[in-house]
């Protein structure tokens, strides 16, 4: 017994020196580009001590910003999640002409500068834009209000789930689904019982990335928000305000709230793993 498992481990990993070398290089890279900057965020957030930190994140304007950010993410993540799964299904399970074009169009929002992602909504809904005068006449506010912020966020986070799932589902092929269908399962049954368990990690990463970006987006939201204190400021915009008030410690304190999202990621992932083990 132990012989076969030892062999299987050996065939799937590298000699110890190579392993350590890879780990060290990976850590050097992460250190330079990730850990040190993150440590700097927390170091500056706590520069003035815990009390100042707590005051900064309990301030009413900060709480209003947190609330708005949560609302924004609560809308944009689910709609993009649904889109992502549907699009990945269409793209990965079927062959059709223009597929690469479709994928590229889905990628497009990533390459659009955040400023432009905001600007396009200004061009559409602004007072000088296509729909602006009509909207004003009917007293509907899109930009410089919550709907504009949500729209810009949906745009910016549009590709995440789809792009996470497409390569994964393509790598897996469609044999399992075809087998399930042939055995008489319905489309939805196949999706829930066969596809979802296969794509769970990709789905989770996609949602986490999408959520992180939705909460952290600055440029696009900045263009459509109007920066009204306590009303249309999201967390990133509130951070900018504090920073511009030379309130560096408070700015980084509020920013570090977003960094704490990582902990949420950790919890969700552990929870999913635990659930998987329970059910299997």
């Amino acid at each position: 017994m132990s012989g076969t498992s030892a062999k299987s481990v050996r065939t799937r990993t590298e000699p110890a020196p190579v392993r350590w070398l890879l780990i060290i290089v990976a850590f050097l890279f992460l250190g330079l580009f990730l850990f040190v900057p993150l440590a700097a965020v927390f170091a500056q957030a706590l520069e003035k001590g815990w009390d100042a930190y707590l005051v900064a994140i309990r301030e009413p304007d900060a709480l209003a910003a947190v609330k708005l950010t949560l609302i924004t993410a609560a809308v944009s993540v689910p709609v993009n999640l649904v889109f992502g799964v549907v699009a990945a299904w269409a793209i990965a399970k079927f062959e059709f002409r223009g597929k690469q074009l479709l994928i590229t169009l889905i990628d497009l929002p990533f390459s659009v500068s955040p400023v432009i992602s905001g600007l396009i909504y200004v061009l559409l809904f602004g007072l000088q834009g296509w729909l602006g005068p009509w909207l004003q006449a009917h007293d509907i506010k899109i930009i410089f209000a919550v709907p504009g912020i949500v729209l810009a966020t949906v745009f910016v986070t549009f590709p995440f789930v789809a792009r996470e799932l497409i390569p994964l589902m393509e790598a897996q092929g469609k044999d399992e689904e075809e087998a399930a269908i042939t055995l008489g399962a319905s489309g939805f049954q196949t999706f829930w019982r066969v596809t979802i368990p296969n794509i769970k990690w990709g789905l989770l990463y996609g949602v986490i990335l999408c959520n992180a970006r939705a909460m952290g987006e600055f440029g696009a939201v900045s263009v459509v928000s109007g920066h009204i204190r306590g009303a249309t400021n999201t967390i990133p915009l509130h951070v900018e305000i504090l920073y511009n008030e030379y309130n560096y410690a408070a700015a980084f304190a509020v920013a570090s709230l977003l960094a704490l999202l990582a902990l949420v990621t950790l919890v969700v992932k552990s929870f999913v793993e635990w659930r998987m083990r329970e059910t299997s």
Binding site: M215, I235, L258, L261, A262
Partner: peptide, 22 residues
């Protein structure tokens, strides 16, 4: 696990904060 979770942070951190920090 912690490192794994930290990988997403460049998205969560507002870009301006990232720039200032870097």
């Amino acid at each position: 696990r912690l490192i794994d979770a930290l990988v997403d942070l460049p998205f969560a951190l507002p870009t301006a904060v990232a720039g200032i920090t870097l």
